Amino acid sequence: MAQAAGAPAADQDADRETVRTVYDGARGRMFQAKAEDALASPTLARWLGKIQLVFTSPPFPLQRKKKYGNLCGDEYTAWLAGFAPKLKEFLTPDGSIVIELGNGWNANEPTVSTAAIKALIAFQEAAGLYLCQEFICFNPARLPTPIEWVAVRRTRVKDAFTRVWWMSPTPHPKADNRRVLTEYSASMQRLLKKGTYTGGRRPSEHTIGERSFLSDNGGAIPPNVLIPPGSEAAALDAVLPIPNTVSGDKYHRACRDNGLARHPALMPEALVEFFVRFLTEEGDVVLDPFAGSNTTGAVAERLGRKWVAVEANAAYADTSRVRFDPPHPTPAGPKRRGPKA
């Protein structure tokens, strides 16, 4: 791996101790390190200004500690905001940062914590980023949590969505919704087949032309609420399936069969794929500084994008290789240069 120009030998040695190459993919590399160490290291310096998309889901600001680590309240807000300026340095001029954060509840009471919202705002402001759009990722199959207030006392309904913020240093980042069109609804397909539409002025005061909805553009533009079809909310004309209940996929099977450590908070592949397709093109580079089981890298490689992944937990980083076919081996011998950016 190329070192930053002029970096002292002692600094290079220290960097090798804190940033370890776990495996090389066909289009990317998995590193094991704390995100803050990796982003400040000479090892990742070669990707400064070359990342088209940072897609990540950092540990959520939960009240109950998880194995993968999480902070709470103001401490969490300051921690997450601290990454913003550095991640901005890695972006291309028209690059994007997409962060998924779940909701949290205040300890010992049925009230929602605003920590996640505050953290997202602090992150945006710390790097002077534009909020291009907010998405809601709805998963109706989530467990009825928080259990005490939803399933025992029954004074709340279950929390079933996460916020996804799309940010960029420019108000006009690279994006094309034609790459994420969904199948037309049955009613839209009938309309296109019929070839006629009743236009005119609507109660909303919008005027609809007689042929406004008669063009077949190859699919429907998805909404910013990402919902699995077949759910109660599937009345939307176009939805993107984002279930996260898979337990029999290749990753889970390989972990079970080989007694490997499984990450407890997996990223839905469909969510990663949506933003990789929407905000990047083949050959672009995608970075995930909180890679977990490396869903981001696996999806990016499958879609012909280059990728860089960082995970602090050595077991999770190592196990993530099973997402690839065949599983990527550990580099042998001297450190090799990573895939060209």
Score class of each variant (00 low, 15 high):
M1G: 07
Q3S: 11
A7N: 10
A14I: 06
E17G: 03
E17H: 11
G25Q: 02
R29E: 08
K34I: 03
E36H: 14
E36P: 03
A38D: 11
A40E: 09
T43C: 08
R46V: 12
R46W: 12
W47P: 01
G49T: 15
K50E: 09
I51F: 09
I51W: 03
S57Q: 00
Q63S: 15
R64M: 07
K67W: 11
L71F: 14
G73R: 08
G73M: 11
A78G: 10
L80R: 07
G82Q: 05
A84C: 08
A84G: 06
L87M: 15
L87Y: 03
F90G: 05
T92D: 04
D94A: 05
G95N: 02
E100H: 06
N103A: 14
W105D: 10
A107R: 14
P110E: 02
P110K: 01
V112E: 15
V112K: 08
I117D: 06
L120D: 01
A127E: 05
A127W: 12
E134T: 09
F138T: 00
N139T: 08
P140H: 07
A141L: 05
R142Y: 04
P144Y: 09
T145C: 12
A160V: 13
R163L: 14
V164N: 11
P171A: 14
Y184D: 05
A186D: 12
M188F: 12
L191F: 00
T196A: 13
Y197L: 15
Y197G: 06
G199Q: 07
R201Y: 04
P203R: 13
E205K: 09
G209S: 06
R211N: 08
D216H: 08
G218P: 04
I221P: 00
P223W: 02
N224Q: 07
P228A: 10
L240S: 03
N244E: 11
T245E: 08
T245N: 15
D249K: 15
R253F: 05
L260I: 08
H263C: 13
P268F: 12
A270N: 15
F274K: 00
F274I: 03
F275Q: 02
R277Q: 11
T280E: 03
V286C: 10
L287Q: 01
D288R: 06
P289C: 10
P289S: 11
A291K: 04
N294P: 09
A298H: 06
A300K: 00
R305H: 01
R305S: 00
K306E: 02
W307K: 10
A309N: 00
E311C: 00
N313E: 06
A317D: 00
V322H: 00
R323N: 11
F324K: 05
P327Q: 03
T330K: 03
G333A: 13
G333L: 12
P334H: 02
K335E: 15
R336A: 12
